[in-house]
Design a protein around this nucleic acid. Structure first.
Lengths: 227, 227
DNA sequence: TTAAGCAAGCGAACTTTTTCACAAAATAAA
DNA sequence: TTTATTTTGTGAAAAAGTTCGCTTGCTTAA
């Protein structure tokens, strides 16, 4: 077990592993080897072992990993034991769709408040969730004990909204606005940029032969020569 | 200019550059240097130059890049001159939110059809867009000349939907279902996994000191020793 | 108890991506 | 025309991430 910083690529894979373990547990599997786990997605088994090894020695040689045990560890590592309360800023189509997004409702995230600046919307409800005036952001956040914010406003407002979020003391932010935002301090900002994803599809369609990350031409290998 | 395969990291950045160039053009800027461009996001200027160099020599030494010119090049490279017609499968909250998502309507993507299996929904419209029976997927795709599909169905249906998409001859797919999907052939599948993004925030909140990709501890450098 | 086999853990090799640093080309000034 | 300045384009170095191959340890069977 190392004491290094963990790359986001690693933690993203932990999520994937956990999902698979949940399925395996549901199927009643007791143990799973990194080889079998790797076969499910198409990953390398060494990578799985390495990812897990950052956090401890969870496996048993000759056996593999105990499904329940590893699941519990990953759940704890990913912080999925604690409840999180989410505010969504922007009660447009996207914001309201996210409000009862399965992923939120399923997991330990609860959408507790929506915010907008449109007087027509303020006071309305989306399901159980009330739409507040964004002017009262900080106070609602405090009252409702919110610790995660989602930016679902048009791009030109996103930076200002982020600053409001920061001022309210929130440390984890998910951003759907297609702009690069400047963050201050130790805040985690995760941007989901659908425009980039779309344009990536567009690029693919425009340039045949650029398949799914698989390289058409194998690069020549640079051999390192030692003496 | 190289003839290598281009990494997705590069093409994603091209999208970002293009966005910035569009803004610069709107502001009336004639030229821009890689240094100035890099300052806008927090990127390295060498990276910008290198990304662009894969596709040609667009810059002028001592001057920089001509904004309009570079914009035109990037637009062409990303295939944003061609119109794309999009089908969204799954007319739930997410599917309908995406239907009039600004990013789609703004750009050269037009949502031309929604699909669902719920008889209640089939025949209805979301804005201008009709909801069709997913059973008629292939024929509608052909008739409406659709070349991009978006999977917005619950995870357990996603693989089957992907196979239908593939059979209909569509080559570019965006997937919102949080499952790893198996693709056949030269199809571009781009998965947007909100669960992973959420859990990444959760991880951050659970483990203080793991800021925005900035490493707390610099890793020791492994020197390569030559003789 | 010993032997055989399986699978985790882990250092080292390799690959990919990013950054550095500088020569080459263009412009502007002298 | 020459010189100074700017900024690209690009090898090479560094850093980051992935995969290999082997050692170690656990389990089962004889």
């Amino acid at each position: 077990m190392k004491v290094e910083k963990i790359s986001e690529l690693t933690t993203n894979r932990l999520s994937v592993y956990l999902r698979c373990l949940n399925e395996l547990a549901a199927q009643g599997a007791k143990t799973i080897s990194s080889d079998k786990l790797a076969a499910q997605f198409h990953l390398n088994s060494a990578q799985i072992r390495k990812d897990l090894a950052y956090f401890g020695e969870f496996g048993v040689r000759g056996v593999g990993y105990y499904v329940e045990n590893l699941r519990d560890h990953l759940t704890k590592i990913l912080g999925l034991t604690k409840e999180h309360r989410v505010a969504i800023i922007g009660a447009g189509r996207l914001g309201t769709a996210l409000t009862d997004y399965y992923g939120f409702t399923q997991s330990n995230f609860t959408v507790s408040a929506l915010f907008d600046s449109d007087p027509e919307k303020i006071g309305q409800k989306v399901g159980e969730v009330e739409i507040f005036d964004v002017k009262n952001f900080a106070s609602v956040v405090k009252k409702a004990n919110i610790d995660v914010a989602v930016i679902a406003v048009p791009a030109r407002f996103a930076q200002a909204v982020l600053e409001q979020i920061t001022k309210a003391g929130i440390k984890a932010v998910m951003n759907f606005a297609p702009v690069p935002l400047r963050v201050e301090g130790d805040i985690k900002l995760k941007t989901v940029d659908l425009t980039i994803s779309l344009e990536s599809l567009s690029y693919f369609l425009a340039s045949p032969g650029n398949a799914n990350g698989k390289n058409t031409k194998p690069m020549q290998t640079k051999k390192r020569n030692k003496t």
